[in-house]
Design a protein around this nucleic acid. Structure first.
Lengths: 336, 336
DNA sequence: TTGTAAGCGTTATCAA
DNA sequence: TTGATAACGCTTACAA
């Protein structure tokens, strides 16, 4: 079933069928109706490969994501896909893992598919080592690249992010104001976003003229689902003599690990130890007690990102960076 | 940069370049090397649209998923994508939501993209109302359809699933053996999978000649992330006089809701009330106490499903149904 | 308002 | 072992 079959049955040329298909004005209403009827009746749908070949686009964007099974990234992918679909675009998903070589591989796979744009989901795609961002710059020479929670100054790269620095500074500052000066900062990746959070944590101390202890900046080197591992890690630190009356974590999973630690140590939350999570994920409500956490308005970020993407593809100039503020969600694990 | 450019630079015809590209034997090694060098040097990659047009395939499968932000479905999508990529296929993701009309829409969007196969992730795509499955049968006339955790007898539809009936019967049976006869079955969707779980729950009673109480089969009508809602729901049931010493839930989120309920009612877990989850998700470890739950080997299911998909596309005949058994994971919320 | 025909970049058949 | 050429099914200038 091709455009030729339709044109024959309708007694018109393929050009006319094509015009009808593409909603051109220059078709006599009567002709349009006849063609439309036959298309309907035959259940004909245009061949997207042929159309793609002619237009050099299949209205598809590539979503690059290290791990779409991660609670937070999964939500991002979901919202991005839904927004893209609304705008008439298809989503090719490519999960790369956290290894740079595989990220490059995934990216080139998508570019070879001739996607109209690339969306990189998660700050882990940006490295502190500028050399490791070159593959993104290269990609941007071919198609517009959208970064969710990543920051890169580059032509044709658009960044949509949450101000993690500000949120974390605010959270830490509130704890410091409560005379809690021994706050442990807990993170488990060195992504752009994590580094911003760390900077915010440190800035809070500095702005209040309080001394920072290196020992309280703690990196958990484990899986992003290993709650027990986090608990053990903290117990270990405690055994080594480290003391702290609060934990601010780079994500909710880490915070839940801290909650488990507190229970194990028979510390009351929040009286003896305050714990703050990040992302306002389902884990923060699942936890007992529930986590005070930061909501970075992911859904909003995603819809803005897709808007930027679509507008860019449509040829209207867009801001290189869009930054939203997070929001502190007060629950039981810390009264800020 | 097209195949013509390469052919000119190499001083051969496009046919030869095409042969090199497709690894044909019938090319003189020396010629092959020359062509390969020029391709490399120019950074040429074939146009997938043109190739797709000629071959009527872009090596792409469509992944249909109601909600890829759901903890469980997200994991499924992730593993499926990774397996497909390994097999050389791209994944177009389409999140439909739970509404039938939108599912049909998503499906036809994918079919119009001329995907090689459709993978439906999650038992929610199968309805008890046979009429509502017709759209799947129709799709199967065009491409092979793979169902994850769904069962449908139909040519060109392949089902890979976990035996939820058996797992749930086993769990319920073990509780009954402990002389706990007032077990509440908690579910929040009427998917194929949920119905299987319910049937397993009921079968355990029947096989032990124990009476079933309709009142203990409880449907929570709320979002799949609303832990507090589940808690309230159970409190409400309690207020109305319903009593139970165990809860078996259709997923971990519901079980966590039951845990919250127990805490609110000052019931000790597992002494006063035993709670069993389903899926062995991160929630089961996040929960306090940790959940006894059922692991249905999702990763294995996904890899088997993709294997079936790829083999079917490759033309080798595959079993219409593949069924795996789940595994009970004992933790703190119930000693089975 | 409609039709003709060129072009998109491959693959594959057939001939040499 | 290679090359010429048709076919894939559409969009779109240009002509009528």
């Amino acid at each position: 079933m091709t455009i030729y079959d339709i044109s024959k049955q309708a007694g018109v040329s393929i050009a006319t069928v094509s015009r009808v298909l593409n909603g051109s004005e220059n078709v006599k209403p009567k002709t349009r109706k006849k063609v439309l009827d036959i298309i309907e009746q035959c259940g004909y749908t245009p061949n997207v490969f042929a159309r793609g070949l002619g237009l050099n686009s299949m209205k598809t964007v590539g979503i690059l994501c290290a791990d779409s099974s991660d609670i937070y990234l999964a939500k991002a992918v979901y919202h991005i896909e839904r927004n893209l679909k609304t705008a008439g675009y298809h989503s090719i998903l490519n999960c790369t893992g956290y290894d740079l070589a595989h990220k490059k591989e995934g990216l080139s796979l998508l570019l070879n598919q001739r996607v109209d744009s690339i969306i990189m989901v998660g700050s882990n795609f940006i490295s502190e080592n500028e050399k490791d961002n070159q593959y993104i710059r290269d990609a941007a020479k071919q198609v517009p690249v959208m970064l969710l929670n990543g920051d890169l100054d580059c032509e044709n790269v658009f960044c949509t992010m949450c101000d993690d620095y500000k949120s974390m500074k605010e959270v830490t500052g509130r704890l410091l104001s409560q005379k809690i000066h021994d706050i442990l900062f807990l993170y488990h990746s060195r992504t752009y976003s994590s580094m911003k959070k760390l900077a915010g944590y440190q800035a809070a101390y500095v702005s209040m003229d309080l001394p920072l202890s290196k020992d309280l900046t703690c990196f958990f080197n484990g899986s992003h689902e290993d709650i027990d591992g986090v608990c053990d890690y903290l117990c270990n630190l405690h055994d080594k003599g480290l003391r702290f009356r609060a934990v601010v974590a780079a994500d909710d999973m880490l915070a839940v690990g801290a909650v488990k630690y507190a229970r194990k140590m028979n510390l009351r939350i929040p009286q003896d130890i305050k714990i703050v999570g990040y992302n306002n994920s389902i884990l923060s409500v699942c936890s007992e007690p529930k986590l005070t956490t930061v909501d970075n308005h992911l859904e909003l970020l995603c819809s803005q990102l897709v808007k930027t993407c679509i507008c860019t593809l449509g040829g209207t100039s867009q801001p290189a960076k869009t930054i939203f503020s997070g929001e502190i969600i007060l629950r039981e694990s810390a009264n800020l």
